[in-house]
Design a protein around this nucleic acid. Sequence first.
DNA 1: CTGAAAGCGCTTACAG
DNA 2: CTGAAAGCGCTTACAG
Lengths: 339, 339
Amino acid sequence: MNLRELSHLLKLSQTTVSRALNGFPEVSRDTRMRVQQAAELHGYHPNRSAAGLATGRAGAIGIVFVGGANFGPHQSEFLGGLSKRLKENEIDILITTVESTNAEMAAYRRLAASKRVDAVVLHSPTLVDERIELLKRLRMPFVLHGRTQDSSNFAHMDIDNEGSIKRATSYLLDLGHTRIGLVNGFRGRTFAEHRQSGFDTALAERGLASDPLLIGNGEFTDEAGFRFMKNFLQLPKPPTAVLAGSMMSALGALRAIRTAGLVVGQDISLIAHDDVFPYLNAENMVPTLSTTRSSIGAAGTRIGELLMQLLSGVAPEQLQDIWPVDLVVRASTGPVTRN
Amino acid sequence: MNLRELSHLLKLSQTTVSRALNGFPEVSRDTRMRVQQAAELHGYHPNRSAAGLATGRAGAIGIVFVGGANFGPHQSEFLGGLSKRLKENEIDILITTVESTNAEMAAYRRLAASKRVDAVVLHSPTLVDERIELLKRLRMPFVLHGRTQDSSNFAHMDIDNEGSIKRATSYLLDLGHTRIGLVNGFRGRTFAEHRQSGFDTALAERGLASDPLLIGNGEFTDEAGFRFMKNFLQLPKPPTAVLAGSMMSALGALRAIRTAGLVVGQDISLIAHDDVFPYLNAENMVPTLSTTRSSIGAAGTRIGELLMQLLSGVAPEQLQDIWPVDLVVRASTGPVTRN
DNA sequence: CTGAAAGCGCTTACAG
DNA sequence: CTGAAAGCGCTTACAG
């Protein structure tokens, strides 16, 4: 069933049927009802390619992932949240995966030239990120999940990683901890730099400096969490508290602590960053985990909203959100007990 | 840059340029080279909507998820694997999320009528699954990840859940365990039924029957794993070995076992089903986890291949794969030590 | 080996 | 409030 057939059936022109279906005001109430009912009855949906060709709009948002490694639990939560908002406008999500950063750049060129998507979600930025300039040059609307060094002139949404870690670190300092470990992401990534900076600032406020031996930069995997924590604990002066960058890192860290015969919340304090995975709950851990918490799913939903606004003409400068992060104190943190 | 502009530039017809770019044989080598170089130079990519309208092919595969809850680590691993294969053909993945099964059916109607995708990946089947008939009626090509009661006449790929659990159960029986717990998915889902059936069969072969009190049906989350295991351990006659349906369930189960003061691999044996998440490795656990193992990412890649074959005209009956599942024995399983 | 032209199924400016 | 017709940018049967 296409528009021509449907309009024949209704003895109307394609123009009128199209207008009725697309909610144009000049169609009479009667006609609109008749058309909508017939469309429903016959399961008519406009051919997206034809509509896209005629309007220049694709009805989809793109997102590019580099490598399978970049496609984990954070991504699925984010996508779940994003699609929750986009589906209200019947906008689909188009996923492209590539193997390298070069291929990622090529993917944006292809998406732009082929008009496959109306906008893209950019993510995992570095402080200086060449992809921004490319997307601007391509005139491809985008919302960045995260920030760069200077994000003033484009749409973005980020959480306050710096403030979050600063607060968590200050809280540990209040408890008497002075040797604090940080399991962080890779250097260069904005979120990791921000976390590092919040960490350093909190320490500096107490006249302390961060110890490079107490910092791990890597993936947010169980394995890396285990490895970093194990290394920390083997130091001559191990930390009495540790900040883990994600729930996955925390799982590994918890294991390393247990393996060393220590008790979390007594011998060593642990705070994890919790992106809120429905299948892995900080409250259910033993002991319950203190966390810096911010739902990455909610971030996805918010970015969906920003995308819709961007496409409806709102200036990118007006579409900039920084979310505060909760500090949730549970049983994995306590006063320092060793020296 | 569109085809008209590019062909003007080259002083060729659109026909020839299109043919050169699409690899038609009748174009001279020289012309093809010139065209390809010019396209490259100017970053020309055909407008997908126009190409789609002309050919009837969308260049994308659809996948529908019901609710955010259905969009977790298994899905991201699967999608990563799927896109690995699809990107070779420059096929993108179109994600749609919906809130209910009814909405899922409507989504397929919409995808089919609007010709937004060339095929869909159907997943999470029940033994009798109404979506199959719908897709057939819509003439929407599909590959099922999983199986139904009778999968003989459509393309599908599944792992041998029944054989996998049967073997794991037999192995535990060999070690002297007779009270074995099963943390499974929801009844009705094919994979859960198959696992249950493999479990029952292995027990029956030794003249044993499965105890309903030793079976948990639910989500594969850390929380559910903890809850089921905790319940098992509070029974008058707790199990001496447990099969956990996923790594997430296993995390919760491990926690419940530790909380009860028991030692995995000594007081109680544990085998988890491992879908192979890069960020959560059974080999790195303490103790290392025995698993039934099958990469869900590899399954995604295989389904990508089946989709490409299906779209190139291979009969669905020829596109049916059942993969055996590894039993990997590590330190979390051992001979029964209690009665 | 190359090209002119029809057609895919919509949307929308223009006319009434 | 409704309709005839042009046009979006490709692909491809047909002709040479």
